[in-house]
Nucleic acid binder design. Structure first.
Lengths: 231, 231
DNA sequence: TTCATAGTTCGATGATAGCCGAAGCATCGA
DNA sequence: TCGATGCTTCGGCTATCATCGAACTATGAA
């Protein structure tokens, strides 16, 4: 029987409808939690967990632990390429399948992640801070630079020395829900979000349970001045 | 459950080890018969038949009927591309699988297909004949031109008019086993092979059951003069 | 015609694997 | 410290599907 379980094993992983739904949901590049993927595939969390470990063992997806969540993303662009190729063949052979549309745009723009800023603006902020050399990042570890301390004191009246906490880091990279990149968590991330609120640059949406963050017109301008894409 | 049987269905086809073995065997571009594919996959012909119809229904392979044989080939280069992509992922994730080596090179070079010449030289001969406008081909139908009739009479002492047969065409395109292209069958193909033998340009290998055709040094030269790649 | 070979169809069998309920960890928030 | 939430593990059920033996069709050879 030739012992040939290699490429077929990978293909079999994609061959299950539930797993395939998960993979196509990940094709946008976003990282999704196990529960979200379960819902996407229309199965219970138990079943999803089993599928996800198989996909991980097969090297198709990679996990990133984030508190009590577990984010999964495609492990490599090549995986997305193969999936697209399969879609091409499937489209030629049969009927096209339309994927689910984009989620609530306000959520993607700016929202609360625990106690800090996430979404498009959150990612943009961390990017800008790295460009301005306010922080140094290596993997998940982020460190405030001397320049960064000055910046926080002068621009946002935040005393970096007061941010140390027994069980929580000052800076932490947090995987973004809507983007596939990181935003800033930790006590600094929380303090900055607090300051934005105090300065009335931004406010959490009034709707109970909503995680949306609304920026005022002035707040948006000030925010862009500090962390705009051209900074 | 979302009703999503599209890309996963294609992937599931590749996901079965037996089918996967067949597909990888076809990745060389060669077309293979159902029995050969069964042997390649290590399964019985019944099982292979079932698999082949599924692969065909999925649009991954295409059949070409050839007498009592049924040749299968990959339906599109895209299919080979996806398979290669899967191999890449599989290679990264686990252990590489080494495929079976190339078959007997003498068989690929020149052999008997029923009663006419096949293999590299057979394909080359038909190509050359088309280039020299000795025959006209449209799909599987091949027709000898006036020029072709003269050529056969002068160069090979073959009377085309004597080749008509109640149940067999004079010219026929026959799918080559080792190449993926056609060579010349029909009564003309048989007559030409007979003439090559009579002229001692070529002879069937002495080994019983062997389909190899050996060309003499002189025969190879004369053959090349008539049907060489530069003709 | 008759026999042999290539391929298919049918039916029964058996193993794989997806699925969920229940229970168990781990982390967060108060 | 306690409850809530996200996720995993375990056990049993069920459906799917690959597999092969047997019988059938079609083509080629004698």
């Amino acid at each position: 029987m030739k012992a040939g379980p290699d490429i077929s094993r990978i293909a079999a992983l994609v061959g299950d409808p539930a797993r395939c739904n998960m993979l196509t949901a990940l094709m946008t590049g976003r990282a999704l939690t196990a529960s979200e993927l379960a819902q996407e595939a229309g199965i219970t969390p138990q079943t999803a967990s089993s599928h996800l470990s198989k996909l991980e063992a097969g090297g198709l997806i990679e996990p990133e632990k984030q508190g009590r969540h577990r984010y999964y993303r495609l492990s490599d662009p090549d995986v997305a390429d193969v999936l697209e190729g399969l879609q091409g063949i499937a489209a030629r052979a049969g009927h096209m399948r339309v994927r689910t549309g984009p989620k609530d745009p306000a959520l993607r723009r700016a929202r609360i992640c625990y106690d800090h800023l996430a979404g498009d603006l959150g990612v943009q902020m961390l990017d800008s801070m790295k460009r301005q050399k306010l922080v140094r990042q290596s993997k998940q570890a982020i460190e405030l630079t001397g320049e960064g301390r000055r910046f926080m004191a002068e621009e946002l009246q935040i005393d970096a020395d007061a941010l140390t906490h027994p069980r929580r880091p000052v800076c932490k990279a947090c995987l973004d829900w809507s983007e596939r990149r990181h935003h800033l968590a930790g006590t600094l991330g929380a303090a900055m979000m607090d300051r934005f609120t105090e300065l009335k640059w931004a406010a959490r949406d009034a709707t109970p349970g909503s995680r949306v963050v609304n920026f005022s017109r002035n707040g948006e301008k000030r925010f862009a001045a500090l962390f705009g894409t051209d900074q």
